[in-house]
């Protein structure tokens, strides 16, 4: 080891310690915004990231064309039937909406509205680590994306939350990431609970619905959406459905395993909700 110390080894180790400290401090100071080095790396890697993403998507589409034609035909038929059912439901809902508007006018209530300012973005890279669930999107601070913004798919199913923002890229931590935590609500009963990622469930593509009310009666298939309590995330975004109900290791409280409604593995395009205004 004499050679090591003679050949500036100590200098290299000192540089590593200092750089690690600077990176850690920058990470704390910049909050959800990327530090200059990460930002630069993200910008420089953009062409490669976009190129690989475009090639992977093109290959996936060619594969679907070649080998999944029959499956797509069957799916198309099923979807046509489903559309017919939904059109009937929508006709009934129209009547209910008109009645609701008349009643709101009658009671002098503010008209309800849900307005969102969203930004479309492409998913350009998958999670770099097996210890988290995240992906990179093609929009960043130059498009007004900020840390903490909600991300949904084209069906308005909740996908995740923006956790790091660069100039023209952002990292989105998905719903199942073990650091994710947000207010959830059971659509059927209106009961509130906490949706949180769990490391054990992350590998199975699931998350937890914890702190369930004592007497809540959950049924497998119950829809879970965001509660919007606290005003950080919009309410009513569909998260997933209840798969199972378990008792915590303590034996006192229960939690539900929730399967996300969105398909996190095949996301190509997402929408970042930059701001929202909701009047119930």
């Amino acid at each position: 080891m004499k050679d090591f110390f003679r050949n500036n080894g100590l200098l290299i180790l000192t540089a590593a310690v200092l750089l690690a400290l600077v990176t850690a401090v920058c990470s704390i100071l910049f909050g959800g915004f990327a530090d200059p080095l990460s930002n630069l790396a993200g910008i420089l890697a953009t062409p490669v990231r976009n190129g690989i993403s475009a090639f992977a998507n093109w290959t996936g589409e060619r594969y679907s064309d070649a080998f999944e034609r029959e499956q797509l035909k069957t799916e198309n038929e099923e979807l046509k039937q489903r559309i017919a059912q939904l059109e009937e439901t929508a006709r009934q809902a129209d009547a209910a909406l008109q009645e609701n508007e008349r009643l709101r006018n009658h009671l002098d209530l503010r008209p309800s509205k849900r307005e969102f300012e969203e930004e479309s973005a492409m998913v350009t890279a998958r999670s770099h680590s097996n210890w988290e669930s995240a992906f990179t999107i093609s929009k960043g601070s130059s498009s007004g994306v900020e840390p903490g913004d909600c991300v949904v798919d084209e069906y308005w199913h909740m996908v995740g939350i923006v956790t790091q923002v660069g100039e023209n890229w952002s990292t989105v931590s998905t719903l199942i990431d073990s650091n994710t935590e947000l207010g959830g609500q059971l659509t059927r009963t209106g009961e509130a609970a906490i949706l949180e990622g769990d490391f054990t469930l992350m590998g199975q593509g699931r998350l937890k619905l914890s702190y369930l009310p004592e007497n809540s009666e959950l049924i497998a298939g119950d829809l879970v959406s965001t509660s919007g309590r606290g005003g950080i995330y919009p309410p009513g975004l569909v998260v997933g459905h209840v798969e199972d109900v378990h008792t915590e290791a303590s034996g006192v409280t229960r939690y539900a395993v929730v399967q996300p409604e969105t398909d996190l593995e095949s996301l190509k395009q997402v929408f970042v909700i930059k701001s929202f205004e909701i009047v119930e």
């Binding site: 590593a16 750089l19 690690a20 400290l21 600077v22 990176t23 850690a24 990470s27 080095l37 990460s38 630069l40 790396a41 993200g42 890697a45 770099h128 680590s129 988290e132 995240a134 956790t163 790091q164 990292t171 931590s173």
Partner: peptide
């Protein structure tokens, strides 16, 4: 550290 998320200088 530049490319990974949440490593905070640990990899350096």
């Amino acid at each position: 550290d530049a490319a990974y998320h949440d490593t905070d200088g640990g990899m350096t």
